[in-house]
């Protein structure tokens, strides 16, 4: 097992997010303070509606908090304008979504190229696909791939830019247990081999066993956080 450095990648301070739907206000984040450390595999756990997706979106620069601060290392994300956030996403962040979000009109390789086209120092698309074990299926369109394969393309796409952080929103949510485990082991090996700080949000409590650090969410607040002294390997997990 690797040493966990004391180096925080994300720091949030009293983070609040309120959605105004016109008829009523929905508090999604209600004063969140947490730190995500470099090279760690962090799991944000909680039921749907607990605010974990909102937090991930804010960490990834897809959304802004209503109040509070988010620091990416020394960079204050809350102070960035649209252009700044775009630049931040382009340079530092890789995303993996529950529904893969592949562009259906592009092949696996081309979906990865979407990222390598705009990244300053990408790895070759083929290499990224090899890393997720899809070297053989690079020229297939999303419709020709299984759910697990599609999610692995999405991971390859996320890591191809060599991001500092990999943000995964329910990466196994649409997958069966067996396929989900395959995807988790890809994420785990990326984290181990490339040292990419990885944040996974899930409502699947089984996944917390493989995390360095776990945050429990409910009603927009962090209820509990702890580190895992003995991480389970992905293959040991099932649900």
């Amino acid at each position: 097992m690797r040493d966990v450095g004391p180096d925080p990648v994300f720091t949030t301070q009293d983070l609040r997010k309120v959605y105004d739907t016109g008829t009523r206000k929905v508090v999604a984040l209600d004063g969140v303070d947490l730190k995500v450390y470099a090279a760690e595999f962090t799991v944000l756990l909680g039921p749907s509606g607990s605010g974990k997706s909102t937090l991930l979106n804010i960490l990834g620069g897809l959304d802004r908090p209503t109040s509070g601060r988010v620091l990416f290392r020394d960079l204050d994300l809350t102070a960035l304008d649209d252009r700044g956030l775009t630049e931040y996403r382009r340079r530092h962040v890789g995303f993996v979504f529950q529904f893969y979000n592949l562009v259906p009109s592009l092949t696996a390789r081309e979906n990865v190229q979407l990222v390598t086209d705009v990244s300053p120092d990408p790895m070759p698309a083929d290499e990224a696909l090899e890393l997720v074990g899809l070297g053989e299926r690079m020229d297939h369109f999303p419709a020709e791939l299984s759910g697990g394969e599609q999610q692995r393309v999405a991971i390859a796409r996320a890591i191809a830019k060599r991001p500092e952080v990999l943000l995964c929103d329910e990466p196994t949510g649409a997958l069966d247990s067996h396929t989900g485990v395959q995807v988790l082991s890809v994420l785990d090996s990326i984290n181990a081999r490339l040292g990419t700080t990885t944040v996974v949000i899930t409502h699947n409590a089984a996944i917390e066993r493989m995390a360095h650090r776990v945050f429990h969410f409910s009603d927009g607040k962090v209820r509990e956080s702890y580190t895992n002294p003995n991480r389970a390997r992905p293959e040991e997990i099932s649900w």
């Binding site: 990834g60 897809l62 649209d82 252009r83 775009t86 630049e87 996403r89 382009r90 340079r91 962040v93 995303f95 979504f97 529904f99 979000n101 562009v103 979407l114 990222v115 705009v118 990244s119 796409r157 830019k161």
Partner: peptide, 16 residues
């Protein structure tokens, strides 16, 4: 919409 969201998440600018 989802693809637009994805492109933005990847870091494509609004102009692109």
């Amino acid at each position: 919409r989802p693809q637009i969201g994805l492109l933005k998440a990847i870091g494509y600018t609004n102009r692109e």
